[in-house]
Nucleic acid binder design. Structure first.
Lengths: 231, 231
DNA sequence: CTCCGCATTATTGTATACAATTATACGGAG
DNA sequence: CTCCGTATAATTGTATACAATAATGCGGAG
């Protein structure tokens, strides 16, 4: 369904480089590495049982993702991620998901529309039954469909990046409370707007959806997960 | 003035890896490498007189930037950039520059505000005299100031990425016609809104500014520079 | 002639070796 | 005791060597 192979690029969880990349990334996002801590190639290589080569390649990617910054001939230092960073990403994402919904309204295919309807319908069912993992999966998939439907490679990539970025935070919060039913109701609003061919309505609904997802998250203890705040 | 060293990360134009990275990137954006063309590590290494190591590291970064995609154990293939991609980026950037202007209104320091006023004033002077390079530099700087003033590391990074991405396109179009005076007028509008503490006005003006920059660009022959379009 | 299978080649993935740069420690001058 | 310079060590940058995987081509069976 997606234009190229699968999900995000560099999702190569099986190559050494991919494993190193994801490992360090998780360790930064989970707070194992503190802000401004220096990452040494050999140390991490030994810890994971690999040589410096894959570690270095992973470093280069992490730098581009903004999670570390590299000073040439000197070292790699973690940039970390604060509570404010997460908030800012949600605000940026809100705008772009709105744009995505707008474009999706104008470009969605019948097949995508059908999958979206099915998605919302199924989510309603699982929400009633309290099937947490299915709900999370459907929630992800709803947004994926929109990303594909907007017909913009650039926007799709950007939103996937954001989505990946906040995924681990969201995973903890969505579920286990009744946010899931609310969330799905908002999905339904977006879907209705798309179906009725109202791009501006779709945009506004998608905007609201992300904002309320964020607000729900802060209510449910974002601060505990990310204690490295600074403001 | 920026929080960390200088401009964008990986701007290490002098290391081998940095040179390879920028070279390939330019070659893709300038159209030297066609869509879906395979990039071979040894070939590029030999062309630039370096070994495979820096080439591979550059590849990993280019993949994350979305300019190539790597199939494990197979090869690296250029993704290219179409006219539609450029348009989409401008639309995304329009929204985020708006957000940036909004936040800048609420967070700008007196020093930044002063530099902004000076910038607009100077640009007016150079525009009248037709000093093209100074105008381009001031235009860049105006946006840089806003990025710094919005007080969001994440948004700043994102906008810098976008800005870098479209820079070579913009460089050709801005200048040489009277867009520069128009552009500076729009900068002035944004500045006025920020000064008067009206975030929504600033947002709207910044939105319009990017859109009109884009519209000007298409009028002045974007299509010739990017003949690899597909729609 | 076509298609399958195996050997060969090419290409990427990883590890290691060497070079260049930067940090550290030690010793002497003042 | 402090400061400076130099020698040493630690760390990153690059090149090369080796391993694993995928593409290519050839030859024979049918």
């Amino acid at each position: 369904m997606g234009k190229y192979n699968a999900k995000n690029e560099s999702s190569d969880k099986f190559s050494l480089r991919g494993r190193v990349f994801h490992k360090i990334r998780d360790d930064i996002l989970s707070g194992k590495y503190k802000d401004n801590e220096e990452l040494k190639e050999v140390a991490i290589g030994e810890e994971l049982g690999v040589s410096r080569t894959p570690v270095r390649e992973a470093f280069r990617q992490l730098e581009l993702e903004g999670l570390i910054h590299i000073i040439p001939n000197k070292g790699a230092y973690v940039t970390g991620i604060t509570v404010k960073d997460v908030k800012d990403i949600y605000m940026m994402r809100s705008l772009l998901e709105g744009l995505c919904a707008k474009w999706a309204t104008e470009n969605i295919t019948p097949e995508q529309l059908e999958e979206m309807e099915e998605n919302v319908y199924l989510a309603e069912f699982h929400a009633a039954k309290g099937h947490t993992p299915q709900i999370a999966e459907l929630d992800n998939r709803f947004h994926e469909i929109m990303y594909e439907a907007c017909n913009s490679k650039m926007l799709e990539k950007q939103l996937r990046d954001f989505h990946d970025y906040v995924l681990r935070v969201r995973k903890k919060t969505l579920s286990e409370n009744k946010r899931s039913t609310e969330s799905n109701k908002e999905h339904k609003f977006i879907l209705e707007a798309i179906k009725s061919g109202d791009p501006l309505k779709a945009e506004a609904e998608a905007n609201k959806h992300i904002i309320s997802a964020y607000e729900n998250m802060v209510k449910n203890g974002l601060h505990e997960a990310y204690a490295t705040d600074e403001d």
